[in-house]
């Protein structure tokens, strides 16, 4: 972000308390306590294996699909502890969408990709074709993809350029009005131009959505996020306004990492 942050709000989209997570016997997250502000872009950085992707996946509980995972502690999304028993995972994932490292459009048409979430969540037959069309159009417009694909909506999505595929993957989260968008290294499969396009898009989506982005690219974290979290070995080392983390880190570890001495 080159513009200044909107100033601190007291609203947090995500708050974790004493969050611990084990893969089998291996503890990947240790006593994580973090508060992520609403309507800004927060980046998660740290060396490989530090737990940043694991933490990201806790926020919509998709970790649990990856085998033997034990989680303890609180994760509050919009004030609600998502590990409470009355939480429905489909409803949670409606509010908290995820974008992956490699664009993963489904092997169906562009239109169907965006409408897929509606199909998954809506009562069959409850949406008219026109409502669906409108939802698809506005989602594609929101990610700045509409003009490029409006004449090829029924072509397969896997034929798009990678950068367009990634935009499509963001667009397909939008019809159900998510609050939070999680991005797991969304640009690592893209070239410089694609990366720029996605970063531009993030700055457009900012404010309307809370964005959390995991990145290996420190320059990206620096230019594209408002706040930055530095993680090491399953713990949060530092969390603050991005420029502070980069220019005036409180911890030696952070300083060494952001200056490229390891990682």
């Amino acid at each position: 972000m080159t513009t200044e942050p909107n100033g601190p709000t007291d609203q947090y989209s995500i708050e974790t308390k004493d969050l611990c997570l084990w893969y089998g016997d291996f503890q990947a997250l240790i006593q994580v306590r973090v508060r992520i502000r609403q309507g800004i872009i927060t980046s998660l950085i740290g060396p490989s294996g530090c737990g940043k992707t694991t933490l990201l996946r806790c926020f919509n509980r998709v970790n649990e699909r990856y085998g033997n995972v034990t989680t303890t502690g609180d994760v509050r999304v919009l004030g609600k502890n998502i590990y409470d028993e009355d939480v429905s995972l489909p409803e949670l994932r409606k509010a908290v969408g995820m974008v992956f490292q490699r664009p993963n459009p489904l092997p169906i048409s562009i239109y169907e990709n965006v409408a897929f979430q509606l199909k998954v969540h809506a009562e069959p037959g409850s949406l008219s074709k026109r409502e669906r069309d409108q939802a698809v159009e506005s989602a594609l417009k929101e990610v700045l993809l509409w003009d490029a694909v409006k004449d090829s909506l029924h072509k397969k999505a896997t034929g798009l350029q990678l950068e367009e595929q990634q935009k499509l993957c963001i667009a397909r989260l939008l019809p159900l009005k998510p609050q939070v968008i999680l991005m797991d290294e969304p640009c690592s499969a893209l070239d410089a131009r694609g990366t720029e396009a996605i970063e531009d898009l993030m700055s457009v989506l900012r404010e309307r959505y809370t964005i959390v982005i995991v990145t290996h690219n420190m320059a990206q974290a620096r230019r594209a996020s408002d706040e930055c979290i530095y993680m090491l070995l399953g713990r949060i080392v530092e969390h603050g306004p991005t420029l502070d983390v980069f220019l005036r880190p409180n911890h030696k570890d952070t300083e060494n990492y952001v200056e490229g001495r390891y990682g």
């Binding site: 919509n60 699909r65 995972l89 409606k94 490699r102 489904l106």
Partner: peptide
Amino acid sequence: MAFREACWNVGASRWQTIRHIVLPN
């Protein structure tokens, strides 16, 4: 696997994932 991940992350149930994506493919 990426197709399944994509489905789960928009809140599709396992059966919806199987029915719409895994079986047809």
